[in-house]
Computed example of a mutant assay.
Amino acid sequence: MKTYIALLRGINVSGQKIIKMELLRQALAELDFDNVSTYIQSGNILFQSTILDPKKLEKQIHDLIEKHFGFDVAVLVVTPDDLKAVVAKNPYADENIEEPQPYVAFLSEVPAIENIAVLSAMDFQNDRFQIIDKAMYLHYAVGAGTTKLSNAVIEKKLKLTSTARNWKTVKKLIELSEAIGK
Rank of each mutant, 00 (worst) to 15 (best):
M1L: 06
Y4I: 03
Y4M: 05
R9G: 03
G10M: 05
I11H: 07
N12H: 11
N12W: 11
V13R: 12
S14I: 09
G15M: 15
K17P: 13
L23E: 12
L24P: 08
L24C: 13
R25W: 10
R25I: 15
Q26L: 12
Q26W: 01
L28S: 12
L28G: 12
E30R: 11
D32E: 13
F33N: 06
D34P: 00
N35M: 09
Q41S: 14
S42F: 10
G43A: 08
G43Y: 09
N44G: 09
F47D: 11
T50N: 10
T50D: 09
I51A: 02
L52K: 11
L52Y: 03
P54V: 06
K56A: 15
E58T: 08
E58N: 12
K59N: 15
I61A: 14
E66D: 06
K67Y: 05
F71H: 14
D72K: 10
D72S: 10
V75I: 15
D81P: 00
L83Q: 02
K84C: 01
V86G: 02
V87F: 03
V87R: 09
V87A: 06
A88W: 05
A88F: 06
N90P: 07
P91Q: 11
P91L: 10
P91N: 08
Y92I: 14
E95A: 13
N96C: 12
N96P: 14
P102D: 12
A105E: 06
V110P: 00
P111M: 05
A112Y: 02
A112P: 00
I113K: 15
I113E: 15
N115F: 04
N115V: 02
N115R: 07
N115C: 04
A117N: 10
S120T: 06
M122T: 10
D123G: 08
D123S: 09
Q125V: 09
R128T: 12
F129A: 10
Q130F: 07
Q130V: 14
I131N: 09
I131T: 08
I131R: 11
I131C: 11
K134M: 04
A135P: 00
A135Q: 09
M136T: 07
Y137R: 06
L138D: 06
Y140W: 13
A141M: 03
G143W: 07
G143M: 05
T146L: 14
S150A: 04
N151K: 11
A152M: 00
V153A: 14
I154Y: 09
K156Q: 05
K157W: 01
K157H: 12
K157V: 01
K159Y: 00
T161M: 01
T161E: 08
T163N: 09
T163P: 15
A164W: 02
A164C: 07
R165L: 13
R165D: 13
N166L: 10
K168E: 07
V170C: 03
L173G: 04
L173T: 02
L173D: 05
I174L: 01
E175C: 03
S177M: 03
E178T: 00
A179E: 13
K182H: 04
